[in-house]
Design a protein around this nucleic acid. Structure first.
Length: 565
RNA sequence: CGGGGCGUGGCUCAGCCUGGUAGAGCGCCUGGUUCGGGACCAGGAGGUCGAAGGUUCGAAUCCUUCCGCCCCGACCA
């Protein structure tokens, strides 16, 4: 293709609305344009990358025996009502009505539709296992779309679903996906980690996420470099740093003391002269409408995900000021476990064995000292806190590190949630009816592109891995008006084409600097510069990432690049 | 939904406080000179200043309401 004929609207400056690197570069390099919050048009270059990514995904999915479908994005309400998710999805689901007033939604994911196909067609254990997938557009009415293509309201997902007779079969389907995902992300040139993920409150037994490190990410991943442990912080377990002061030894009873105007952990620490680790932080939560008091060490944060999982509730939130007043007779800042009535108490494992701690007195402007869990109040010990930097690995004792990451894929053992709620039954070898066990597996296609840009860029632009770059070679004659340069460039161009390379010839009547800048910005992995060395029969082959340059005779360029790519 | 910021040619922004005939740079078009890292000269096109209402002789500028976009938080199968 000839650059002068292509629509590649590069910008010298990034539009003001872009903040994260991948967003800025995708706009500047002319890959995408924004239509509205969380809605992007993919222009020529982005579409080329996306086609390359989806081709890789397709090959690897096909290789594990998965079969490609294409399901409607528009779904009838009834299907989602059967699984219970018409209500559960809440405001995150786009809903609409047809001309007859029938409720419809735009699919956020396709467990329901896949299950409805399965229950209509699958009859016998002989038909299992099945893996069905699609590469299709998903819609989610995100409360806050952000970060360019990283969090959007419409995006392309590869989603697959496995149906197996028994858990051992699901293990196999799951493992096939795990390996296929590794191959996909390897082939896309990404540096990623696989982490244990939160499986949700509704009984999924196992799930893993594929994550790429990026400051633009929204998840924190806890990793132990020593033993390789890696988990999403929503689920991660680690050993907390020991308390900064030893607990008073002795069998004391709780004793009230006046703390006028001191409400925060830091204020109490300053007032008492004891560190935050000597305090219990009391958090009043509401789980499915019922109050629950969650207790963590003063310097720790409650993990709401762990909390929700522990309660088994569908919906959790922090209590508001009126509720707290009503339940405790005091305001936030003076709350504690002693005397908390008519509610469940949960306490973080880190506080097991601690004695004579400080907590709120449930009386405004008063706190208690000498509060001992298990003696002065009863609570369920559960891991509730967020892992922090400085904790040590529960497995090997190494120091864990936390890294912000973007989720690009998620594999999930679903269990029987959909097969049971939607009445999918097959007949076993023994002639009994049984519900197949399911798995679901997702890859965010645009996130692969964005994550690659986040991972590989410099001040001049993108440095996309060749397998997903829109072009792999650009031929840049310094002066296209020069006959010798033009002829050499065209010759190399057609030889590259014949060698099967994705090549573009920059035939624009621009100064060389403009062409070099655009090639760098767009992130084409190799550039062939046809210029001053041509009289010697030589051109330069420049590698984008390292900027390594090599002079080659005109007739060897295509073969050389063919080797590299 | 709470908090903050921003909306002025395609892009980046000035002008707004203190009301008085809409600007710059880049980009675009024409002609010329250039040609190894975003050239130079000359000429030119392009804007209902987010929208509506109000105040005023007069509103980009002041007031009210609404809309949109971004950021932080809440939320996130």
């Amino acid at each position: 293709m000839y650059w002068s004929k292509l629509f590649i609207p590069t910008l010298r400056e990034a539009p003001a609305e872009a903040e994260v690197v991948s967003h800025k570069l995708l706009l500047r390099a002319g890959y995408v344009r924004q239509l509205a919050a969380g809605l992007y048009s993919y222009l020529f270059l982005a579409q080329r990358s996306i086609l390359k990514i989806t081709a890789i995904v397709r090959e690897e999915m096909d290789a594990i025996g998965a079969q490609e479908f294409l399901l409607p994005a528009l779904n009838p309400a009834e299907l989602w009502q059967e699984s219970g998710r018409w209500d559960a999805m809440g405001a995150n689901m786009f809903r609409l009505q047809d001309r007859f007033g029938r409720d419809l939604c735009l699919g956020m994911t396709h467990e329901e539709v896949m299950t409805s196909i399965a229950r209509g067609e699958l009859r016998s254990y002989k038909q299992l296992p099945q893996i069905w997938y699609q590469i299709q557009t998903k819609f989610r009415d995100e409360p806050r779309p952000k970060s360019g293509l990283l969090r959007v309201r419409q995006f392309i997902m590869k989603d697959s679903y496995s149906f197996d007779l028994a858990p051992e079969g699901l293990d196999v389907s799951y493992e096939k996906h795990r390996q296929a995902y590794c191959r996909i992300f390897d082939r896309c040139g990404l540096k990623y980690v696989t982490v244990e993920a939160h499986s949700g409150a509704m009984g999924g037994s196992q799930s893993q996420e594929f994550m790429v490190a990026s400051d633009a990410g929204e998840d924190w991943v806890v990793e132990c470099p020593a033993c390789g442990y890696a988990a999403n912080s929503e689920k991660a377990v680690a050993v907390a740093a020991p308390p900064q002061a030893a607990d008073p030894d002795g069998d004391f009873t709780p004793e009230e003391f006046h703390t006028p105007g001191r409400k925060t952990i830091a204020e109490i620490a300053e007032f008492t002269g004891l560190p935050a680790t000597s305090q219990m932080k009391s958090l009043v939560m509401v789980a499915d409408g019922a109050p629950v008091l969650a207790l963590v060490r003063g310097d720790h944060q409650l993990s709401e995900t762990k909390f929700q999982t522990a309660t088994g509730a569908d919906e959790c939130r922090a209590a508001n000021a009126e509720e707290i007043r009503q339940w405790f007779g005091a305001d936030a800042g003076s709350l504690g476990p002693v005397g908390a009535k008519n509610m469940r108490l949960m306490i973080d494992e880190t506080l097991r064995g601690r004695r004579n701690l400080i907590a709120g007195a449930n009386k405004d402007d008063y706190h208690l000292k000498n509060v001992t869990p298990g003696e002065d109040f009863q609570a369920e010990f559960i891991d509730l806190r967020q892992v922090v930097e400085g904790d040590t690995c529960a497995g090997c004792g190494g120091r864990v590190k936390l890294t912000k990451m973007v989720e690009i894929g998620h594999i999930f053992k679903l269990g029987y949630k959909y097969s049971k709620s939607m009445g999918l039954r097959i007949t076993t070898e023994e002639g009994q009816e049984t519900a197949p066990i399911m798995g679901s597996y997702g890859i965010g296609i645009e996130r692969i592109l964005s994550a690659a840009v986040e991972l590989y860029h410099d001040k001049d632009g993108m440095m996309l891995p060749p397998p997903i770059a829109p072009f792999t070679v650009v031929i840049t004659p310094v002066n296209f008006g020069d006959t010798a340069q033009r002829e050499a460039a065209e010759r190399i161009y057609s030889e590259c084409k014949r060698a099967g390379l994705d090549v573009v010839l920059d035939d624009r009547d621009e100064r060389p600097g403009v062409k070099f800048k655009d090639a760098d910005l767009v992130g084409i992995p190799y550039r062939v510069t046809v210029g001053k060395k041509l009289p010697l029969g030589l051109v330069e082959v420049v590698e984008r990432r390292e900027r390594k340059s090599q002079d080659l005779p005109v007739d060897q360029v295509a073969a050389h690049l063919r080797e590299l790519l």
